[in-house]
Design a protein around this nucleic acid. Structure first.
Lengths: 207, 207
DNA sequence: GTCTATATTTGGATAGAC
DNA sequence: GTCTATCCAAATATAGAC
């Protein structure tokens, strides 16, 4: 396979990701997917077995990479002499927000798929995500707890939930903030990350 | 109509709200709705014209009340000699979290419907919400700006987005935090509000 | 306003040729 | 691995009796 060739499987994944981002899982038909991917209707069931499994594969393709980037960044932050809160938060937040930059490869669409997944609260999908990627969150909770020794565990978990909510919201571009015309996408993303890290660090350290 | 009588229309609204919360808009069929409401399949189209209009009516029923409660609480907070940040945030956050307590009347389900609405990013629905309830958010932004004079407008809007995200996330119970067995629902809600207000106030005041 | 019955469309999935 | 054709279930919506 050359660098410019995309297999039927890849084309289906990318088309499905874009459509799921726009219309949701239930709101997207396999006919739309195969049409946009320019493959035959039967191809989805051939390559993925079912619509549900196609959804799982979309998550796997993105989250394997995102988790690795987050853990690598966390490791680097913890390896330093001091590991300020901001560096740990940065390790969690920046790789996620960077996905929103990746329009070329559909990362931006995936971010919205992820936000939908939270809203859907599909039990099987949640179990899939928890089983496969829950350990990443636990690593970060542990690292943050180390920097906030005065905080009781319960409060820490509350606040981590709030950070996750703010991040999801910011990533999926739900809010009022729109990128101004003069600002590049990359600069906007960097700014988002800085703003969120400062906000989250202060919130985590509230009295 | 007596206090204990619920019209076909009301029963449809409540059943639809509960089902939309659980399975999403596209994921819920009118057959499920009419079956759960114990009305005939044809009743939805008779009373609401279409599925889409049924969705809008669900939002109208809840948001008219929520917006009024928020604005009343804001007015009360601003009428006092001093209006600390926490009181303004409380006016925004508590009425929303109180909805999660209202299991009797389905408010808890609506909260998740609202979270879905953000994720859906349905343009017609977003316009409906912005047109009808956008002024509430602007009132709060103005009030908060008055308490944070040193903050530039752009940063304020960023942080408001983060607060909205954290609130949505907390309300819809997406995160890791689960209500412990020994704690009543009401206590859990009060605790959520306190935690979020403290977190948001600190975040808003970050350097 | 409510019912039964049904028209019409659309969806996921599969069989079987190539 | 890919295609056409098709099955079958489920969906929205409507027509017309009561």
């Amino acid at each position: 396979m050359t660098a410019t060739h995309f297999s039927t499987k890849d084309r289906i994944l990318s088309a499905a990701e874009a459509l799921f981002a726009q219309h949701g899982f239930a709101g997207t038909s396999l006919r739309q997917v195969t049409s946009q991917a320019d493959v035959n209707l039967a191809a989805v069931n051939y390559h993925f077995g079912s619509k549900e499994n196609l959804v799982n594969e979309i998550f796997r393709r993105r989250l394997d990479q995102l988790s690795q980037e987050r853990l690598d960044a966390l490791k680097a932050a913890l390896a330093k002499d001091s590991s300020p809160l901001q560096d740990i938060l940065s390790a969690f937040i920046r790789p996620a927000l960077n996905l929103t930059l990746d329009r070329q490869h559909g990362g931006a669409a995936f971010v919205r798929v992820l936000a939908r997944a939270y809203a859907e609260k599909n039990d099987r999908l949640r179990k899939f995500l928890s089983d496969n990627y829950g350990h990443v969150l636990r690593e970060f909770a542990k690292a943050l707890a180390g920097q906030l020794p005065e905080l009781d565990k319960e409060t820490l978990y509350w606040r981590l939930d709030f950070v996750a909510g703010a991040l999801t919201y910011a990533m999926a571009d739900f809010g009022m903030i729109k990128r101004p015309d003069g600002v590049s996408e990359k600069d906007h993303c960097v700014k988002s990350a800085e703003q969120l890290i400062a906000f989250a660090a202060a919130g985590l350290q509230a009295d």
